[in-house]
């Protein structure tokens, strides 16, 4: 590992930040399209969940889908929001989360941290970094008994199906306004 040799002063200096302020606020039409996309995306996931999965002891709506909606509808151009990352990030992280729960389940804090950290590392290595994936890995560990009982089915439902529904809505909605396009890349 290579640390900068310049010492404590520059280490603390880094905490001041390097740029003046955050990126500019987007214009109002962008805000409205982000709202509309997220509304329709979460509607689709929530409706399907209620219609098909509520009685089957399965769930399609997990917290990390809300985080994905931020990226997919709020930062459409971001590499983090592209299909490869959206699907890959959730699937890999769910696999890591379930595996951690099944192998290390006895020690909750350790299982949680190993799951999230390993999910991030794997997403990096596979170029599928998607921040909500960390939430998916964590949910697989701290989730309800219902989630734990699903085992590796959790990887399929909700961790693959939920993002797929969001992807479908994103493709339909994000390509309506002239100023938006989605995706930037598929794989």
């Amino acid at each position: 590992m290579r640390l900068r040799p310049s010492g404590l002063k520059s280490y603390l200096g880094k905490m001041r930040g390097s740029t003046h302020g955050s990126p500019p606020r987007v214009r109002l039409p962008e805000v409205l399209w982000s709202w509309a996309g997220a509304f329709l995306g979460i509607t689709a996931v929530g409706w399907l969940n209620q219609r098909f999965f509520a009685d089957a002891d399965l769930t399609l709506t997990i917290g990390s889908i809300g985080a994905s909606a931020v990226l997919v509808f709020g930062a459409v151009r971001s590499p983090l929001a592209q299909p490869r990352n959206l699907i890959g990030g959730h699937v890999l992280s769910a696999l890591v989360g379930v595996t951690c729960w099944q192998w290390l389940g006895g020690d909750p804090w350790l299982t949680q941290s190993v799951a999230v950290a390993t999910a991030i590392a794997l997403m990096h290595l596979t170029r599928t970094l998607h921040p909500p994936g960390g939430a998916t890995a964590l949910i697989a560990v701290i989730g309800s008994d219902q989630v734990h009982a699903m085992g590796y089915l959790f990887v399929l439902i909700p961790a693959t199906l939920g993002p797929l529904v969001l992807l479908a809505v994103a493709l339909l909605v994000n390509n309506i306004p002239a100023a938006r396009r989605y995706p930037e890349f598929w794989l």
């Binding site: 390097s18 740029t19 003046h20 955050s22 990126p23 987007v26 214009r27 039409p29 962008e30 709020g74 930062a75 459409v76 151009r77 971001s78 983090l80 100023a179 938006r180």
Partner: peptide, 9 residues
């Protein structure tokens, strides 16, 4: 148009 998740730096 749209949110760019990069900083000026």
């Amino acid at each position: 148009p749209g949110y760019l998740d990069i900083t000026t730096s």
